[in-house]
């Protein structure tokens, strides 16, 4: 079965829809939405409506991210100034049914040998960044799974064990399937769908083929100009628009 792994959509409906269409073309049968559905971007309602529809029809499973938790008032969490401004703005946009949906989201999700979490499997609610091999080792040993899929860090990275049991970071090449056999453990940070931070435009996500045991990372073009203009029109910090345009 093919899973679409989508993280950090961040209220970017243009990016999200482009990824959903691309995933359909890849034969994806099930979506794993890895948290931070909202925050930063200008379309929290549209993104949440789409997520709710996908979850209700059992096409997707969604888990909670730190921006989602803060927006629905579920947990306090330190944020930088731009993020906090965006969250305050986002709160004002949410209808009760959106808040209800967010309040019910799980912190992690396990299916067969896969484990999904927004940040790290080590205390998911402390939102630890996985940015070194050490962090990845801790996350994998807490998750006890062959494949861990996560987001939070916006650049895609695949952590794997080398010859000496240390974990190493691999920066995946777009469109090239990487064999991820389950006699090893793998931690894939799939990259941000709605807010790239690598000065490149496009929506990141990954497809996991559980039969072939292969993982492919994609970057899908979408109308990032429209998404950026909406951020400016909403009066959100301009840096958040520049990210989408690859200029910050």
């Amino acid at each position: 079965m093919r899973y679409g792994l989508i993280a950090d959509i961040h209220s970017n409906i243009e990016a999200f829809e482009a990824v959903l269409a691309h995933a359909q073309g890849q034969g994806v049968a099930r979506l794993l939405l890895l948290g931070d559905l909202i925050g930063y971007g200008a379309d929290p309602q549209a993104v949440l409506e789409r997520c709710m529809q996908l979850v209700e029809t059992q096409q997707a499973v969604a888990i909670l991210g730190n921006h989602d938790a803060l927006a629905c008032g579920r947990a306090p969490c330190e944020m930088n100034e731009d993020a906090q401004m965006a969250i305050d703005w986002t709160r004002g946009q949410l209808k009760p049914r959106h808040t209800q949906f967010l309040l019910r989201l799980p912190l992690s999700y396990r299916e067969e040998h896969m484990f999904c979490v927004h940040a790290s499997a080590v205390e998911p609610e402390s939102w630890t960044y996985v940015s070194t091999g050490h962090d990845a080792e801790a996350c994998l040993s807490a998750a006890q799974a062959d494949w861990v899929f996560s987001g939070h860090v916006h650049d895609p990275t695949l952590y794997y064990s080398g010859r000496d049991e240390h974990m190493f970071a691999f920066r995946p090449t777009e469109n090239i399937p990487v064999p991820v056999p389950n006699h090893r453990s793998w931690l894939a940070i799939v990259g941000s769908c709605g807010q790239p931070r690598d000065r490149q435009v496009g929506a990141r996500y990954a497809v996991f083929d559980s039969i072939q045991q292969k993982l492919t990372f994609f970057r899908v073009p979408y109308d990032h100009h429209a998404a950026a203009e909406k951020i400016r029109a909403a009066g959100l910090p301009s840096r958040l628009a520049l990210y989408l345009e690859g200029k910050a």
Binding site: L158, Y160, G162, R163, D164, H166, F168, F170, P172, T173, I176, V178, P179
Partner: peptide
């Protein structure tokens, strides 16, 4: 391979 992880990587 440039596009695949180096399974032979080790700390030293």
């Amino acid at each position: 391979h440039a596009h695949l992880p180096d399974l032979l990587a080790e700390a030293f």
